[in-house]
């Protein structure tokens, strides 16, 4: 188990409301003939912090990539913030500007400075004036504790710093939901902590978060729900304490024993 989480967590703003943020109904996805996601049903309320885990190839990344339609689903229904995802490009762009995403490999734009990375989407998508966008960007860069790097290029930063920039870049769009696709998997151990700290701060402010991660320490400390996936389906979901201490299905037990039991 990760020992990265050492600090006390402020739960005063972590409140789950009744408002539905994401509603997925009987969703299926195929890659060609391969059935990757099978009959996914899931409701995410505003303020929830959900950790999705499971063995590799279980479809967890594909699931959260369907939520901002980086992947297209073939049947069923996905409604994000009241907007249904269909092939209508307007809806897709609307959802994408409301949903922030952080990738495993950061995907910063290497030809732009850190500041430009953060202001690009607000300026071109939200039509924010440049000065205002820069102020917002500096605010979020300070929040992830790297304002002094604003005029460097991504290639000059460490992995952990790059991932924090990627988080700041998403936050600059003022998203209502954040998706994290294995945000710490490509990082050296000493850098995982700084990224997790940033994510915890975000959770403390009440952000709705879906994280695909293997950081079980993070799941126990922050999540209000853990979803376990295998072979393209949701096998078990529960609140973290129950999930880790009292897993129900055999697959979950096997998975937990593999990643925790040394």
């Amino acid at each position: 188990m990760s020992e990265a989480i050492t600090r006390q967590i402020d739960r005063s703003h972590m409140q789950v409301s009744d408002e539905v943020a994401i509603q997925i109904t009987s969703m299926n996805k195929w890659y060609g003939a391969f059935h990757v996601l099978r009959d996914i049903n899931m409701t995410v309320n505003r303020g929830e912090r959900i950790v999705i885990c499971g063995p590799s190839g279980s479809g967890k990344s594909t699931l959260i990539r369907c939520i901002n339609r980086l992947e297209e689903h073939q049947s069923g229904k996905i409604v994000v913030d009241g907007t249904e995802l269909t092939s209508d490009l307007k809806n897709i762009d609307k959802v994408r500007s409301e949903v922030g995403m952080v990738f495993q490999h950061f995907n910063l734009f290497p030809h732009l400075t850190i500041l430009e990375n953060c202001t690009l989407a607000p300026i071109w998508v939200r039509k924010t004036p440049k000065r205002e966008a820069e102020e917002v960007a500096m605010h979020f860069l300070s929040k992830v504790k790297i304002p002094e790097q604003a005029h460097k290029y991504p290639g000059q930063l460490s992995g952990g710093q790059q991932q924090r920039v990627a988080i700041a870049r998403s936050l600059c769009m003022k998203p209502r939901i954040m998706l994290f696709d294995e945000p710490t998997s490509a990082l050296d151990p000493e850098m995982i902590k700084e990224v997790l700290d940033t994510m915890i701060e975000l959770a403390e402010e009440g952000m709705t978060m879906l994280c695909v991660t293997h950081e079980m320490g993070f799941a126990q400390a922050v999540a209000n729900r853990v979803i376990f996936m295998d072979q393209g389906q949701i096998v078990e979901q529960n609140e973290p304490k129950e999930f880790f201490n009292n897993p129900q299905s055999d697959r979950t037990k096997l998975f937990l024993s593999q990643i925790l039991g040394h």
């Binding site: 901002n68 980086l70 490009l89 762009d93 609307k94 994408r96 500007s97 949903v99 922030g100 995403m101 990738f103 490999h105 950061f106 995907n107 910063l108 734009f109 690009l120 989407a121 071109w124 998508v125 870049r169 998403s170 769009m173």
Partner: peptide, 20 residues
Amino acid sequence: GQYEAADALGLDYWQAQRLI
């Protein structure tokens, strides 16, 4: 990942092509 990051930020096709 560059295409995906541009998409995920809500840039449309021509903006993504031109800027990223």
